[in-house]
């Protein structure tokens, strides 16, 4: 597949209270954005286990986006801080595994930021498109 025609397949984990609601608002406001990102709803970004991300990349996703509330605004007080730390560690691990850490991105989108959500999706899609498809990684043990 040439890079030009490459359409990345991206999975997003969005928290129910902010980012998912922001995505809803983008919809209600009819703000168009690329279709590459598919959303999985979790209650809080703190629920996102790094293994979900690795699993998505392993299954063939080209990128993963994690969306939470702005720092200080998490519905569960501090889940987004935990998520941020975990993802920082995961990114190091990804480099070690030979996966470009730019394939994983964390963002803050509030329930009022429909436009920002669409902007983020555009950016992420462009960025991952430039990186090209992921090489399949092998899963060593099943869990």
């Amino acid at each position: 597949m040439s890079k030009d025609s490459f359409e990345p397949n991206i999975v997003a984990f969005l928290c129910n209270w902010c980012s998912y609601a922001g995505a809803d608002l983008a919809g209600t406001s009819r703000i168009e954005y690329p279709p590459n990102v598919k959303i999985i709803r979790v209650m809080c970004s703190g629920r996102v286990n790094p293994m979900f991300i690795v699993n998505a990349l392993h299954e063939g996703a080209d990128g993963v986006l994690i969306g939470g509330c702005h720092p200080g605004d998490c519905h569960y007080i501090q889940g987004n801080y935990f998520a941020r730390r975990r993802i920082a560690v995961l990114k190091k691990l990804l480099e070690y595994l030979g996966i470009d850490e730019r394939r994983v991105r964390m963002t803050w989108v509030s329930a009022a930021e429909g436009k920002k959500f669409a902007d983020v999706i555009r950016e992420v899609t462009d960025d991952i498109r430039k990186l090209g498809p992921t090489h399949q990684i092998r899963r060593s043990n099943s869990w």
Partner: peptide
């Protein structure tokens, strides 16, 4: 418990 899931990920 309010179900955020932070503990489960930890």
């Amino acid at each position: 418990c309010k179900g955020c899931g932070s503990c489960a990920s930890t």
